[in-house]
Write a protein that binds this DNA or RNA. Structure first.
Length: 222
DNA sequence: CCAGACGTTGTT
DNA sequence: GTCTGG
DNA sequence: CCAGACGTTGTT
DNA sequence: GTCTGG
């Protein structure tokens, strides 16, 4: 699955995703946890823009967002069938930029965190969905989820799920405000090629969401 | 018809 | 055990 | 995802 | 909102 990620090459965001980047409020993050505000790219063509959204979906239909667990992931395989996601898949797709993500592999004596990133070091985008909830005063709160899919050969030894990472060539179509046929959805959300990524163990310091810093993505010894 | 759920993950 | 907060 | 809290009453 | 269960 994907419950923690990194986004450190902030300077590349605007050019990589062809958006205007907020002048303030963005800084490199090595330990992005659910419940925090994350930069998200929405809409398509000339309307493409970046917004901050809370990671963890509050559906627009929710009456009290404090009740019920907020979803941080959505399964690619069943997106089109689930009532909660069907409408979002049609109209509210987004890109969630990242430089890497973390997965915890089971091991004797506790789980070991791994950082996974592109071999070429470039930024990439998770396939995401978002929604907008309005509080009783009418104030909108935008929230998002990261779509997950089956693991590729690199991730399979580590975990049984991985985030859906879009091919760069599919990003515009993912954002475009038009329905995507089921076959296209399946293709776009397929696990990305294993040979484009690398995975390595990191310190359990990343476990604590309050920890930050470059050390979190450094390879752990032995 | 109305009421109530709607989701994922990991763990047991 | 289960929920909330980050 | 993991970490950390989880509760009430009365008294100061 | 929309689907399922009774």
């Amino acid at each position: 699955m994907c419950g923690r990620y990194s986004l450190v090459c902030i300077d590349d965001l605007g050019a990589r995703f062809r958006v205007r980047v907020p002048a303030v409020g963005l800084e490199p993050r090595f330990n992005i946890a659910p419940g925090t505000d994350v930069p998200v790219v929405v809409a398509g063509g000339a309307d493409r823009r970046m917004e901050l959204m809370r990671w963890g979906l509050i559906p627009s239909r929710a009456r009290d967002p404090s009740v019920g667990r907020r979803l941080i992931n959505a399964r690619a395989e069943t997106l089109a069938e689930k009532p909660s996601f069907r409408a979002l898949v049609r109209r509210r797709r987004c890109l969630i930029p990242a430089s890497g993500f973390y997965e915890w592999a089971p091991a004797a004596g506790g789980r070991i965190p791994y950082h996974i990133r592109r071999k070429d070091g470039r930024l990439f985008a998770f396939a995401g969905l978002y929604d907008e909830w309005r509080d009783p005063a009418g104030i909108p709160v935008a929230t998002c989820v990261i779509i997950t899919t089956t693991p590729n050969d690199l991730l399979r030894p580590i975990h049984d799920r991985m985030p859906a990472i879009l091919r760069e060539a599919d990003e515009e179509r993912w954002l475009a405000p038009e329905a995507l046929p089921a076959a296209v959805l399946g293709d776009v959300l397929a696990p990305c090629p294993a040979d484009e990524l690398e995975a390595y163990p990191v310190s359990t310091a990343v476990n604590n969401p309050e920890n930050e810093g470059e050390g979190l993505i450094r390879r752990a010894d032995g």
